[in-house]
Design a protein around this nucleic acid. Structure first.
Length: 860
RNA sequence: GCGGGCGUGAUGGAAUGGUAGACAUACCAGACUUAAAAUCUGUUGGGCCUUGUGCCCGUGUGGGUUCGAGUCCCACCGCCCGCACCA
């Protein structure tokens, strides 16, 4: 019989369903294991990235089932968000219909992959049963003071009358209207994540099974710094303003101060713009810039001289100008800085532009050739904190000190002289959760003229989104929905208005992992279930979530614990994290023609072919530029649809391929050739199984022993590979073992044992094929439920070992010796070799290094 | 701009500081076939001539540590990800 993926895949999926193999229930007889992949946004169709992500999780889940764990492997939908509203605006439908329609489609596309998911726990974050519990969490957080209101800046589109996300701002203009975007202040809700800065930072050390790079990125994001907070006294400032408070991490450069810079949003700047039209214009222009940090940092550094002056705290006679500058963030520090051009390149650029003085406070201890002080035209000199420098114009010990010592000395000096205080600050800002959009979780509060902001009563939850909304007018439809918006105050019963803002979708994804432990509960979580299933033992997702999603989830775990929704152990909810790479594909750009709208013209993979070493469009023969390995994107026509791959080759081929060619943390490029190779291999295994099933038994020989030895090596290597996320390496071993088996001269019984083991080792990756081979070769029960094989240590060690012999680190010969041979014996045997004597050419070895089982290196 | 990562044959990649290129693709050669496809077998980093169990070079570039560096350290170049209202 030929290999028919479609047939066997359907068959074994029903078998697993009938056996209820993936239904998770609490049980004390096995250790639990919770494996979770970041849940998908229901964008419309599944893509290869989903296949890769869920296949990796599935490998872990199936491996853990086989090694005797009680596995929880759930799936849900991150279903709120802008694309649903955009679709509604574009085509007139309802975000709800669009979203649930997409979920149905994607679930139908995922099912054939044969994932070991407990679908009984499925939910979407836009289900009222889910977001209602999220509203309950919000009210608990409010009660505990974990959420509060303050003003914050948003991107405002004055034509569409709507708030824009950063990604909706293109070159300072709204993506739909093309209008110049403004910054506007709104009163918004914030989570007090900054209260946990220190704790979130320190706890990173406990996350030993997280990638070091993710921990480092979070550390930098939280951004702890030690510095000095002090003020400059303002000369003839406006009423009530007599000083400018400043925070600096380099107080040792205070004697190099050359100006004071304040944010355009600083209270002083706002006060001054009232009587200064030019300044008002400057500030307005700054506020037209986007709100993203990237944009602020990349923008040309510009300043406006307010004409005001301040006194230097160490020398009242020393006056400095005050500038409003576009690169200073009101959100960080005090919204004001002092500029020290000699030791900060940005300040130096600024000083040169506005002809401000440049004064070095320290210089290198030993200047290299060509070094010039910044005041002599050199670049800003910024030493490492551990580098020793020569303080030439310091004030706190004036001597050679490391940068760090200089900072500490400066803080101590300033504190002793009443100039300022050493403070620890964090870069981490509070998390603004208000969104002025319809398709999100309503914030469950009411605004009452007499009572102010009143939380909705818990028994009135969920505050449901109204269905009768339209998107034919700009703005948030909740704002113009009177019967929903107008309500009674929960406190006084008088006329009040619902909050029409909804929550950031990051809120939805900050606790879904906890909800999976009790997805139908009438409370956000159930302690008994959370106690059993939490924490997530292995979390898998994209590196793009390294900071925000993971940090927010860590904060939520703490907040939920405080409110009694999670056990103490869940303060860090993800025991282990793995960040996988993307699935990429070449882009085929027409080199001779552009699309009608002037943009580049991209061709689908099946529209091009190779002719005489060049890639051309099949129909027209036009030349094509191949851009290798780019992120799959609809607009580039380089998306490969998993459905078509599954239809053509089966799910096992798709699963095998996405795991095989690249290490999981790196990007993998989808190629037609790679998919075919995967299919070819699975066919080979199938054919091998057919052949072995019909073999007649033969007397045992050395070949049997050899095959068993290779089998145990394969068990060992594949197990190691799966345990350490080395799926590609595990697959390489499986290829090699398949080759060994197909050439083996061993007897039928041994070959059957070997191919059953091969099936088991393959089953996490290609569960359907494995199941079929297992059954064909007389395996008992379901392969998916069979106990994982264990490598026999005794079978792994060889009697002899081949050692390379190096002369001065260059390989010159090799020698085969008994594995347990003594070091000195190995040394003797190596020196006695002809090739070694020839290479030595009479020279006497100075030193001989023998690393047992590894290498011999002769140094002459 | 800031933070993080990556860079190895024609290609994807393998390699606890210890024989660089496992495994796969592609290419070439052979078997089977009237033929092709499929399948199976074998070869393949570059260079040299003296064809050997030979020599030299080789993991983005330049330096360093080490008996020994793809791996560790420093600098540079290129590409990718994140930058707080995309999910």
């Amino acid at each position: 019989m030929p290999y028919s993926a479609a047939e066997i895949e359907a068959k074994w999926q029903s078998a697993w369903d009938e056996a209820g193999l993936f239904r998770a229930t609490r049980s004390e007889d096995r250790p639990k294991y919770y494996v979770l992949e970041m849940f998908p946004y229901p964008s419309g169709r599944i893509h290869m990235g989903h296949v890769r992500n869920y296949t990796m999780g599935d490998v872990i889940a199936r491996y853990k089932i086989a090694t005797g764990h009680n596995v929880l492997h759930p799936m849900g939908w991150d279903a709120f968000g802008m694309p649903a509203e955009n679709a509604a605006m574009a085509s007139g439908g309802h975000p709800k219909d669009w979203t649930y329609g997409n979920i149905a489609t994607m679930k139908k596309q995922m099912k054939p992959l044969g994932l070991s998911i407990d679908w009984s726990r499925e939910f979407a974050t836009c289900d009222p049963e889910y977001y209602g519990q999220q509203q309950a969490l919000f009210l608990d957080f409010l009660e505990k003071g974990l959420v509060y209101r303050k003003n914050a800046v948003v991107n405002w589109d004055p034509v569409d009358m709507t708030v824009l996300a950063n990604e909706q701002v293109e070159n300072g203009r709204g993506w739909r209207s093309g209008a110049l975007v403004e910054r506007r202040e709104l009163t918004q809700w914030f989570f007090k994540i900054s209260d946990y800065s220190q704790e979130l930072l320190e706890a990173l050390d406990t996350l030993e099974h997280w990638p070091a790079k993710v921990r480092l990125m979070q550390e930098n994001w939280i951004g702890r710094s030690r510095g000095l907070q002090f003020s400059f006294s303002l000369i003839d400032g406006p009423d009530g303003m007599d000083r400018v408070e400043v925070y600096t991490t380099r107080p040792d450069t205070l004697m190099g101060a050359s100006f004071v810079g304040i944010s355009p949003d600083h209270p002083l700047a706002r006060r001054l713009e009232a009587d200064n039209e030019a300044l008002a214009e400057f500030n307005a222009e700054c506020r037209r810039m986007g709100t993203s940090e990237e944009e602020l940092e990349k923008a040309e550094k510009r300043g406006f001289d307010t004409g005001l002056r301040v006194r230097h705290p160490l020398d009242p006679a020393w006056e400095l100008p005050v500038y409003v500058a576009n690169f200073i963030l009101m959100d960080y520090g005090t919204g004001a800085i002092f500029g020290c051009p000699a030791h900060d390149q940005r300040d130096l650029d600024f000083a040169r532009k506005y002809a401000l003085p440049v004064v070095s406070t320290y210089a290198p201890v030993a200047a290299e050739d060509g070094f010039a002080l910044p005041e002599e035209g050199g670049a800003a000199y910024v030493p490492q904190k551990t580098e020793t420098v020569n303080y030439i114009k310091g004030f706190a010990g004036d001597a050679q000190q490391t940068g760090l010592e200089g900072i500490d000395a400066a803080i101590a000096f300033c504190e002793a002289n009443g100039i300022g205080q050493g403070v620890t600050k964090f870069r981490l800002r509070d998390w603004g959760l208000s969104r002025q959009r319809y398709w999100g979780c309503p914030i469950p509060v009411v605004h009452c003229d007499s009572c102010g902001v009143v939380p909705e009563k818990k028994e009135n939850l969920p505050v449901r989104l109204p269905d009768d909304v339209s998107f034919d007018q700009p703005g948030n439809p909740l704002d113009r929905h009177p019967t929903w918006r107008d309500c009674a105050c929960p406190k006084c019963g008088g006329a009040a208005r619902r909050e029409t803002d909804t929550m950031d979708t990051f809120v939805d994804s900050s606790w879904y992992f906890a909800r999976f432990t009790a997805p139908r509960a009438e409370t956000p979580t159930v302690m008994e279930e959370a106690e059993y299933w939490m924490n997530v033992d292995q979390y898998i997702g994209g590196i793009e979530h390294a900071i925000l999603h993971l940090l927010y989830s860590r904060f939520f775990a703490r907040a939920m614990q405080i409110c009694g929704h999670l056990p103490e152990k869940s303060i860090e909810p993800f025991n282990a994290l793995f960040t996988q790479g993307m699935v990429t594909h070449a882009i085929y750009e027409n080199a001779e023609r552009r699309a009608d709208n002037g943009r580049p013209l991209y061709h689908y993979p099946d529209e091009v072919e190779e002719r005489d070493g060049a890639v051309v469009v099949k129909e027209t023969g036009e030349a094509v530029t191949v851009i290798p390995s780019a992120k799959m994107s609809k607009s580039k026509n380089n998306v490969v649809d998993p459905v078509s791959i599954i239809d053509a080759y089966g799910a096992d081929t798709a699963r095998w391929f996405v795991l095989s060619d690249s290490p999981p943390e790196r990007d993998v490029e989808w190629t037609a050739a790679g998919a075919e190779a995967a299919f070819k291999h699975l066919t080979r295994v199938w054919n091998l199984s057919e052949r072995i099933a019909e073999m007649e038994d033969a007397p045992e020989s050395d070949a049997d022993k050899e095959l068993l030895r290779e089998m145990h090596k394969a068990i060992h290597d594949v197990t190691m590979g799966v345990e350490s996320f080395g799926f590609n390496a595990a697959i390489a071993k499986l290829y090699a073992f398949t080759n060994t088996l197909s050439k083996s001269k061993a007897g039928a019984a041994t070959q059957r044992q070997a191919i059953r083991t091969l099936a088991q080792l393959m089953s996490p990756m290609t569960p359907h094929l494995a199941e079929d081979v297992w059954a064909r070769q007389g395996g008992e029960g379901l392969c998916a439920a069979a106990t994982w094989p264990v490598a026999d240590e005794a079978m792994l060690v060889s009697d002899t070992v081949t050692l390379p012999i190096q002369i001065n680190g260059k390989r010159r010969a090799e020698i085969t010796v008994p594995a347990d041979m003594d070091k000195s014996e190995v040394e003797k045997a190596a020196l006695a070799m002809n090739a070694v004597q020839k290479a030595l050419d009479g020279a006497a070895p100075k030193k001989i290094i023998v690393v047992p089982g590894r290498i011999v290196n002769v140094v002459i």
